[in-house]
Design a binder for these strands. Sequence first.
DNA 1: GTCAATATTTTTGTATACAATAAAGTGATT
DNA 2: AATCACTTTATTGTATACAAAAATATTGAC
Lengths: 218, 218
Amino acid sequence: MDVRHADRIADALEELVFTGQFNDGDRLDEIRLAKQFGVSRTPIREALQRLVASGIAEQLPRRGVFVRQPGPVELMEMFETMAEIEAVCGRLAARRISDEALAELEQANDLCRAAMASQDTDAYYRENERFHHTIYAQSGNSYLAGQALRLHRRLKPFRRLQLRLRGRLAQSMGEHEEIVAALRSGDDSRAATALRDHVGIQGEKFRHLMTELRTAAQ
Amino acid sequence: MDVRHADRIADALEELVFTGQFNDGDRLDEIRLAKQFGVSRTPIREALQRLVASGIAEQLPRRGVFVRQPGPVELMEMFETMAEIEAVCGRLAARRISDEALAELEQANDLCRAAMASQDTDAYYRENERFHHTIYAQSGNSYLAGQALRLHRRLKPFRRLQLRLRGRLAQSMGEHEEIVAALRSGDDSRAATALRDHVGIQGEKFRHLMTELRTAAQ
DNA sequence: GTCAATATTTTTGTATACAATAAAGTGATT
DNA sequence: AATCACTTTATTGTATACAAAAATATTGAC
């Protein structure tokens, strides 16, 4: 457990931002954070650099670092990008996926279904993540998979809100099955479409995300 | 011109890595760099953090920061990802592009052609970039456009090698015209395919990139 | 009381000092 | 000669000190 303070603090700050402990535009005060974490400014500044690099915060030279929560527009753009990237992963995976991975997708779906039945939200999220991560990996392009993973993580706190919608879980499960079927058949454009529609936010999903965002902001 | 040392140094180091002044695995010695740039270790360390964040270098805790040049496999993956992301930009742009932007694409193509005729390599690169950046922007998704731009920049040094291939420029111009035609017709899948094929590396292009890489490594 | 000019405080950015860990060197033992 | 323990050196990570810029407070004129 001998990890650099800077890394530990960066993770902690990320978590704080993601869980809504900071509002958009809040200044991340070095001295205050240093006292809070019981370290000097140096590791705090390194951690802040990491937040800036990952787009969670913004740096104004000689002014400070400010948290930057995505607004509705940017959030929509990020979800659209995620949908398109997952579609690409699916397109490539349809031609490259292994039988083992197909089995893993189905297993993840089974466990998702079980989690849904037993109201085990955590398990559902875990298996849902495994499902998507497997598709990223099966794109056969680890750079692309890394990018997908990165954005997936960035959107995590917002996806959480989204899935509370009544009946959404059952619909999501059906979409997962269509995705697996498309991948199994090797139909790349079908897989791309299925994933794009699954991840994308339109119609009811969009309306719901907006209301959730409004309430979360207060 | 009152810019932070750390930012200036990060840009300089990026440039040094991109222009091949460092080999894969080279350690970026803080003390040496500090003397070289005439500053203390502090801004050097901030700059190194930025390189690590952007994937140009890797950090091993309590060991140092090492430059990480992509090998042939990762490079192919990055080019494939670039091709797919450009395809996505094209797919979205086909439905969203403005008449002004279409005119700008054609102007960029005209200037590309002129640059080709007068052997003005710099002008060619400049207009080629404008062509692609315009398509990113016309995706109507500024987050996606930002990601595309980021990867485009990362691949810049390698694209330079690639385009030296005799006759490649003329072929590239033809592909540009097909892309514009697809965008003008609003045919999203045609635009996606045209861009994917244009950016992707297959057949002769692949073989050529590999030999260029081999010679560049020495 | 308001506004501008100036002084004070705060905060960032950089330099330096120090502590902890890893790497390199040294010598004894087999 | 090779290997292991131990010492020395070098390098990273963190703390602190200082300089410069920005933010804030204070003073004085009107």
